[in-house]
Design a protein around this nucleic acid. Sequence first.
DNA 1: CCACCCATGTAACAAGTTACATGATTAC
DNA 2: GTAATCATGTAACTTGTTACATGGGTGG
Lengths: 179, 179
Amino acid sequence: MSLPHAILTALLEKPSSGLELTRRFDKSIGYFWSATHQQIYRELGKLEQAGQIRALPAPVPVRGQRKEYEVLPAGRAELSAWVGGTEDPKPMRSALLLRMRAAAVVGSAGLRAELERHLSLHQGQLAEYLAIEERDFPAERRRSEPDRLRHLVLRGGVELERFWVEWLTAALAELGPEE
Amino acid sequence: MSLPHAILTALLEKPSSGLELTRRFDKSIGYFWSATHQQIYRELGKLEQAGQIRALPAPVPVRGQRKEYEVLPAGRAELSAWVGGTEDPKPMRSALLLRMRAAAVVGSAGLRAELERHLSLHQGQLAEYLAIEERDFPAERRRSEPDRLRHLVLRGGVELERFWVEWLTAALAELGPEE
DNA sequence: CCACCCATGTAACAAGTTACATGATTAC
DNA sequence: GTAATCATGTAACTTGTTACATGGGTGG
């Protein structure tokens, strides 16, 4: 049940239309909770019906017309309760680790190229996160709690990408030069 | 499309019944691709229909009777092709990072306790992985490729848990003593 | 006027989750 | 014989994905 809360968070940061939300998911919140525009529209409908958000009044509601949403008090309360709640970490799901396990059984033909590809993807993502960090969280100065929290989230992204880069590098070394 | 390949891998390692598979998922393959028994039975049915596995001949097939499956050549070929293929890494999904981002907006009340809870869960998982490593991959000796691959997978699990332990520790320090 | 992009959606499906149903076997 | 456990399954639902549909506005 995380998508609605992701949307509430995004809308509290800034009221938006569905498409704007989609774009922001593509380059910010979506870094740790991705969603397509179809999911977002579906969820916006549900949240509106639940009375947690509302569309800003438009003169004539027409299909294809931009609709801007804002969070209602009930929505903020719901999000606040969710933040204070508990939820067990979901076991990870990595198709790549699974493929390596399968390779132990049927042979690792073709695996090396894929590891190299993933390595370069993760290196790219890591560089992107580091650029964001440099831009949005410069210097070591006293910061507000919201800023510290946002920085912690970004640090999570950075360290996770670093993990993948290191693991993939080690895996390539261990696999040996030829396969 | 990873679950069928997880099952094929498990069945190649050892032909099993649905319930046995479920148990093995709970303590091995499931560490990086979890599944419930309902998912497994559903998928076994599909794989059998697709001619990739078969149930070992039973005298009289009755409901509630144990059914053991083995992989057919077509199944091994499919798994082999999948290992050699490509698949982009799925963007991560962490409800905990999302909650921290939400906390930056609505306040972090109650978050600290949850971080501590997750820290202890991840410490437990890390200890479990390290125990498995010590048991199954001792000493530094020349090993076969399958063993090296399996060890790499486990190293992935270890380092990922270590990431969480370190990030959670840093987050708790950054949040400060009281909240 | 038509191609293109903005914006909102529908429909169909696939994957994962939760709750429950049913028969077989074993321990007491 | 009955309770517990083993074992296989159904049903209903939620979440996520993929493909397509519809209308509005803008540039050429």
